[in-house]
């Protein structure tokens, strides 16, 4: 925390002379600021993507994770006995909170999108469905499936994992993609600032020579450049972050039916990450420029 305070003081404390020893660079300073802004803009979206993917993964992971379905496909004569047997098994199965057989009306509603609401379900030998509510982590889908196979062969357990897990995996990959994007953006920002700082130092070789001749230490010369680039990175990042945040704010939220990505908008404490971005960019500007400056000053004789 102390070193951050020292860094902030070095960057923001007014030192008019030190700022003026390096001549103004004109439009190249705007380019540095603009690049930092664009990088911050992209970082906000990468962060938002990562957070949204995380939420999506959690939602998909939670969805139906506390429920299972048992389908009983047997002849009309055997079906009721099988249902009864399955219900008995469920009452003695660990991790099962409750279980109930779906009524004819509920099954008709489920099938309505395909067969309409007039389906004479009571005259058809439609499989019976048992909705099972689970109680926690003690439940073993594999154990129940084995028991059902042995004691009620017409019953088929579906714990929803078959389609839920690939979605959760996909969401986790999206989250990783978001973080990888951010790392790449940071690498690009470091590279850009390093190149710009090196160019600025090389262009000011004569200024550096004069400063050295009058007794300036390399740390003094480096700081003159570091301050300049850190402030540019900070200002650009503030503008880019504010603009990206506004765009995110205008996106549909998770509750909005139009939110096709279930809400890319950042929520709650996630905004803290966004607030930290400009400071992070400033730190990148500080350390990238300082390193480049000390290397170039070491090369200049």
């Amino acid at each position: 925390m102390t070193s951050l305070a020292v860094l902030l003081r070095q960057v923001f404390s007014s030192d008019g002379h030190r700022d003026r020893v390096v001549p103004p660079t004109g439009y190249t300073s705007i380019l540095t600021t603009a690049t930092s802004g664009i990088m911050a803009f992209l970082t906000v979206f990468a962060l938002a993507l990562s957070f949204a993917a995380d939420r999506l993964g959690e939602r998909w992971s939670d969805a139906l994770s506390d429920s299972a379905t048992i389908r009983i496909s047997a002849s009309a004569q055997e079906q009721d006995a099988q249902v009864e047997r399955v219900m008995e098994i469920l009452t003695t199965t660990q991790g099962v909170k409750s279980a109930r057989v779906l009524s004819d009306e509920e099954q008709r509603m489920i099938l309505a999108p395909w067969f309409g609401t007039d389906l004479p379900i009571e005259r058809l030998n439609i499989p019976r469905v048992i909705d099972v509510t689970l109680n926690g982590e003690d439940f073993s889908a594999k154990g129940l499936a084995l028991r059902l196979r042995a004691e009620a062969p017409a019953a088929m357990l579906d714990d929803h994992g078959r389609w839920r897990m690939p979605l959760v995996k996909a969401a986790n990959r999206l989250k990783v993609l978001g973080w990888v994007s951010m790392i790449l953006i940071v690498v690009a920002l470091v590279s850009m600032i390093t190149l710009a700082a090196r160019a600025a130092l090389s262009a000011n070789a004569q200024v550096i020579r004069v400063l050295r001749l009058i007794g300036a230490q390399d740390s003094y010369i480096a700081t003159a450049f570091v301050r300049r680039f850190s402030v540019r990175a900070f200002v650009g990042a503030v503008v880019g972050t504010v603009f990206a945040s506004l765009v995110l704010f205008l996106l549909p939220s998770a509750e909005d039916p139009a939110g096709i990505l279930t809400g890319l908008r950042i929520q709650g404490v996630e905004w803290l990450w966004i607030l930290v971005l400009p400071l992070f960019s400033m730190c990148i500007g500080f350390f990238a420029t300082r390193r480049a400056a000390l290397i170039v000053l070491g090369e200049l004789t």
Binding site: H17, V21, P23, L213, I214, G215
Partner: peptide
């Protein structure tokens, strides 16, 4: 120096004061 070696974007006063500033 023979060629004086000033920072041309700074005034005469600022150039003369430069050793004070850097030290």
């Amino acid at each position: 120096h023979q060629d004086c070696q000033f920072l041309d974007h700074l005034s005469v006063l600022e150039n003369i004061a430069l050793p004070l500033v850097v030290s």
